[in-house]
Design a protein around this nucleic acid. Sequence first.
DNA 1: CGCGGCCTTGAGAAATGTCAACTTACGTGG
DNA 2: CCACGTAAGTTGACATTTCTCAAGGCCGCG
Lengths: 241, 241
Amino acid sequence: MDTYVDVSPRTSRIMPSYCDSCDVRALAVCAAMKPIELIELESILHHVSVQPKTTFIEEGEPADRVYTLNEGSARIYKLLSDGRRQIVGFALPGDFVGLMPRDTFAFSADALDHLRLCRFERDEFDRLARHRPRLMERLHQYATDELLMAQQHMSVLGRRTAEERIATFLVDLRRRWARVSGRSVTIPLPMSRLDIADYLGLTIETVSRTLTRMARERVLLMVPDGVRVLDDARLVAMKGD
Amino acid sequence: MDTYVDVSPRTSRIMPSYCDSCDVRALAVCAAMKPIELIELESILHHVSVQPKTTFIEEGEPADRVYTLNEGSARIYKLLSDGRRQIVGFALPGDFVGLMPRDTFAFSADALDHLRLCRFERDEFDRLARHRPRLMERLHQYATDELLMAQQHMSVLGRRTAEERIATFLVDLRRRWARVSGRSVTIPLPMSRLDIADYLGLTIETVSRTLTRMARERVLLMVPDGVRVLDDARLVAMKGD
DNA sequence: CGCGGCCTTGAGAAATGTCAACTTACGTGG
DNA sequence: CCACGTAAGTTGACATTTCTCAAGGCCGCG
């Protein structure tokens, strides 16, 4: 039986690995696989665990592996040489991380909290995808989903005010959490204010001020590691459109 | 033999249609197809021609077709209800237009100049892709390429100054034109200043002022429907990173 | 209890947006 | 072929949002 192998030296974990018992299989790209095919997937998969704040993909590194995220959340970002950072997305459980048409990664990724992932060597994964049309199709569907979200986010970055950006971010994130853990009035925010700012093209101060204002106006209630939505209709209206 | 069918009533064209003689086949998704498979592709393809300024994809419409662009250029954009517009990309010859994981389009597209396209009914195209792994793979590669460009553009929209945006836009566009028509010091700009502004998250005035300044500083020379690069090193330096 | 990281708040600065006038380019029709 | 009208682009003066810089508060952890 495979085990979860912690990539950090500090801890190590023994966990069952069979895809049968995977929490996120229905969400992940593996959902496309039949039981017999899942065995092939299992045979090339390595369970890994990543500690909070750890970088597990670095821009410029060889793109020799891909991941599915089973547990935890991560930030995906690009850095400019002067330190400016653009977070291009947050990965949640079920997400596929490492789609890359080139041979080096064009983004970095770090763990926001403790992660459990399935790691695949890219060669092996690609070979399997070429032999299993269902997997290739699912992967393509995943890529076009990401592209759609990216286009949506471009219109947030290019054409929306700070308040609209924050409202859009919260509503979209709530929708994504709902897929993983069911709908809830509390939206978990495992990322810092700085992360939110770097995702929305704002500064930390503008994020803070905008959230404070939304809390003052009783649209939100800030809670530890998240926000609780008090007035859903107003929040959605604030997105604009 | 198929013919180019003009969708507008004003003109009509008779053109040879065989993929053999297609200028952009090497660039387009069809590059993945073997001669025998190309015949299948030809059998489901409709040549269409679109007049300048015409909208050929409208946000919200059923996403029942896809295109490859053979000639001309188009803008792909999203509108907000109050009229704000974000152009998410410009399509050039060889590009695939219409990737969409949902059943309605999430963007609109209009012709910047006269277009010639291959149009495919989505059902038929998807069916073919499912039977021709090479096509599916190529499509997936195309989607991940687009995703990469989208992530790059997010970091432009979120974290770069007006000058950096313009410089990045020009250098990227030049690279893309080079694939189509070879490298040249003149960068064709079939889009208006307003289009550039809506692509870069700026206003028309800021685009105009920035281009004027770059021309005054002898980095560019503005020519009809384009710019000529006078000082490549400085232009690239202006991108920052 | 004190330190450090993260967050909030305020005051002033700066980049970009807005509004308005003017110029240029271009196509149409007299 | 010129004159006009319209659309696109440029430029200037001013407004505004967001950023920058700085101080202070909160909270968890050693």
